[in-house]
């Protein structure tokens, strides 16, 4: 058998294709989502390789130039290169939304485990608080937090993180309640395992699988909330490059027809959110087909 690049490529992708046969369209959704995320992650990690200009640099060309030539996505009112700002802006939105989702999952999972395992008055109070926050519109809560905290990367991350804590709490608490009754937990208790051991070694590994799915879907949501806050002019100082802020700035030039200033930042926000949603949807179907129907 002689070597050919096509065959080598086919061999690399063979496992993916096998998975595709096994899980059908869900697997390809997952792959597409992962590809989008990988592409934008590359942007965020190595912006220098993609962006021809510094995102803050003014006078890169004519003012409000339409896409084409030296400016792939045109220039804005300060003669900055829109594509370069898109590339560097990916760092802000990815950083904030992933960090926020990590933070809220950490707090939510911990509280959910404790609340579900210990029960009693703590569980009652925590559940009531979390349920109340859960029904409250997340964006409004985030707006209130962002307005109080003032602009800043850490502040906006906290404002976004707060609204997802109840999601994890409710999920993990419910599962903890169910797993607590399992025979193997009772067996562990019978051989004298401490509460911490049971929580950490017996219950936690069993709840983590579903939280992975919720995590990816949460990042997708956090992306839209982050961009919404900065679009509204809350959350970040103007010195930071951010898609939502670029969108808000481009809005002023909509009536005069400078379409590229709003089209590209918004498209990127949607694409990134779509990437995480597709990853989450695919994972959900493959790990647990009934999870999202509940």
């Amino acid at each position: 058998m002689n070597y050919s690049p096509a065959r080598a490529l086919a061999r690399i992708f063979a496992p993916a294709a096998r998975m595709g046969k096994k899980y059908g369209v869900e697997w390809w959704i997952l792959c597409a989502g992962a590809c989008i995320i990988a592409a934008i992650l590359f942007m965020a990690l190595f912006p220098g390789t993609l962006a021809p200009f510094n995102p803050h640099q003014q006078d890169t060309g004519p003012q409000l130039a339409s896409p084409g030539g030296a400016h792939l996505m045109g220039t804005d009112n300060l003669k900055r290169d829109v594509w370069s700002r898109i590339v560097y802006g990916s760092r802000t939105i990815l950083g904030v939304s992933v960090l926020a989702a990590l933070l809220s999952s950490l707090v939510g999972i911990t509280l959910g485990l404790l609340s579900g395992y210990s029960g009693g008055i703590l569980d009652r109070i925590l559940s009531l608080i979390m349920d109340s926050v859960y029904v409250f519109p997340g964006l409004i809560l985030a707006i209130a937090f962002a307005a109080m905290f003032g602009p800043g990367i850490i502040n906006i991350t906290l404002a976004v993180a707060v609204i997802y804590i109840p999601t994890y709490f409710r999920l993990v608490r419910g599962q903890t309640l169910a797993i607590k009754q399992e025979l193997y937990v009772e067996a562990a208790r019978a051989i004298g395992a401490s509460g911490t051991t049971i929580l950490w070694k017996y219950i936690f590994p069993n709840v983590i699988a579903t939280t992975v799915v919720v995590f990816t879907l949460n990042v997708a949501d956090a992306i839209m909330i982050e961009a919404a806050l900065t679009y509204l002019g809350l959350g970040l100082p103007p010195s930071i490059v951010d898609w939502g802020m670029d969108l808000a700035m481009g809005k002023k030039y909509l009536p005069s027809g400078q379409w590229w200033l709003i089209t590209f930042p918004g498209m990127m926000i949607s694409l990134l959110a779509l990437g995480f949603t597709m990853l989450g949807e695919g994972l959900a179907e493959i790990l647990n087909p009934r999870l999202l129907e509940r």
Binding site: L254, P255, G257, G266, S270
Partner: peptide
Amino acid sequence: GIVIYCIPVYWLGLMLQLIFGIW
């Protein structure tokens, strides 16, 4: 269903404004 869910409402608004309002 998936794509429309991922499009931020403010961007959809801006694009509709651009297409139906301006163009």
